[in-house]
């Protein structure tokens, strides 16, 4: 079974600092990591390979430094990594990113299953997975929380919906986007890290891919960012401190009064 996992390198968002002047992210000193939601995709892909044989290839589009994310994926147990990198890809929105990734996946070769994280924690769109399925005309299941079975030519999955779950059967090749319920990502092993350090990671540039220049990067993206604002975080609400029985009652009474003004009760 040939598995491909498209991943994204993202800034570690738990300690993102914004420049209040420019409204842009301060990248200095911010660590780049594999998008945390992609780890679940990597894990389930490795598990499927372990059970059914085959190989897992992680692919990412990004700057040359995104090579690090691919090596981490290999250290976890992916067999190969492919970096898709070219200055002409810079500024791509989800449409253009998916367009290029599809060309890269087609170049990698025959694929049975593409597994992607549900979304990336920086852009937070969740669009590239469905975009790739649409462009390659592959059957798609999003928000997959369990892979129930893999047959020769099909996969049965559970998909998380607002109301519960639904069970779908997709013929292969297919594309899944997965949620964290699907797996517990393993940590890289020492042996994995050693292998990752030695693995040769090819870079696909514009010259290597059958792409149309007009569909690349900012220029090839249907969407444009007009404005970036840093929202005000503080709401400056009332804060009550409970120190004893009396202040406890006072705080709860005030809360109930507050709830009444907001017509909650």
């Amino acid at each position: 079974m040939n598995l491909i996992v498209p991943i994204k390198q993202v800034p570690e968002t738990s300690n993102v600092k914004m420049d209040p002047e420019t409204g842009t992210m301060i990248r200095d000193g911010v660590e780049s990591i594999i998008n945390p939601l992609d780890l679940y995709a990597i894990e389930i892909a490795i598990q499927l390979k372990e059970t059914h044989g085959g190989k897992v290839t992680a692919v990412t589009m990004g700057p040359p430094s995104a090579d690090k994310a691919l090596r981490e994926a290999i250290a976890m147990g992916c067999d190969d990594g492919v970096l898709v990198s070219d200055r002409q890809f810079a500024g791509a929105d989800t449409w253009s990113t998916a367009y290029v990734l599809v060309k890269a996946i087609e170049k990698i070769g025959a694929v049975d299953l593409i597994i992607a994280g549900e979304r990336a924690t920086d852009g937070d769109t969740g669009q590239v997975g469905p975009n790739i399925a649409a462009a390659m005309d592959l059957p798609l299941a999003t928000y997959v929380s369990a892979v129930d079975g893999v047959e020769q030519d099909a996969v049965t999955v559970q998909r998380l919906t607002e109301e519960g779950y639904e069970k779908l059967r997709l013929p292969l090749p297919a594309l899944l986007t997965v949620v964290k319920e699907i797996s517990y990502p393993r940590l890289p092993t020492l042996r994995g890290k050693q292998r990752a350090a030695k693995t040769e990671i090819p870079t696909f540039t514009v010259a290597d891919l059958d792409v149309e220049a007009g569909y690349l990067g900012l220029k090839g993206s249907p969407t444009r960012v007009v404005k970036i604002e840093t929202p005000k975080v503080t709401r400056g609400g009332k804060i009550f401190k409970v120190t004893d029985e009396e202040s406890l009652h006072e705080a709860v009474d005030s809360l109930i009064a507050f709830m009444k003004t907001k017509e909650i009760i």
Binding site: G129, P130, A134
Partner: peptide
């Protein structure tokens, strides 16, 4: 879940800009 599945699928095929969420 369905809106966020259908819209990117359609947008890719018709080459339209889509903004999420």
């Amino acid at each position: 879940v369905n809106g966020r599945t259908l819209m990117p699928h359609v947008a890719m095929k018709i080459h339209a800009g889509l903004t999420a969420d």
